[in-house]
Computed example of a mutant assay.
Amino acid sequence: MGALSPWHIILIAVVLLLLFGPNKLPELGRSFGKMFREFKDATNNNSGNTNDNRELEAPKKELAIASDTAQQPNAQK
Rank of each mutant, 00 (worst) to 15 (best):
A3F: 02
L4Q: 11
S5V: 02
P6Y: 02
P6S: 15
W7V: 08
W7K: 14
I9W: 03
I10Q: 09
L11M: 03
I12W: 12
A13I: 12
V15Y: 03
L16A: 08
L17W: 01
L17G: 08
L19W: 07
F20M: 01
G21Q: 07
P22Y: 12
N23H: 04
K24L: 05
K24P: 00
L25K: 01
G29E: 02
G29N: 09
S31N: 04
F32R: 13
K34Q: 14
M35W: 11
F36H: 04
F36K: 08
R37W: 02
R37V: 07
F39H: 04
K40S: 14
K40F: 06
A42M: 07
N44P: 01
N44M: 12
N44F: 04
S47M: 07
S47I: 12
S47Y: 10
G48W: 02
T50S: 15
N51Y: 14
D52V: 14
R54V: 11
R54F: 15
L56C: 00
L56I: 09
E57P: 00
E57I: 12
A58G: 00
P59N: 12
P59S: 05
K60P: 00
K61R: 13
E62C: 02
E62I: 09
L63F: 11
A64T: 10
I65Q: 04
A66H: 04
T69I: 13
T69R: 13
Q72T: 08
P73V: 04
N74I: 15
N74C: 06
Q76L: 10
Q76G: 02
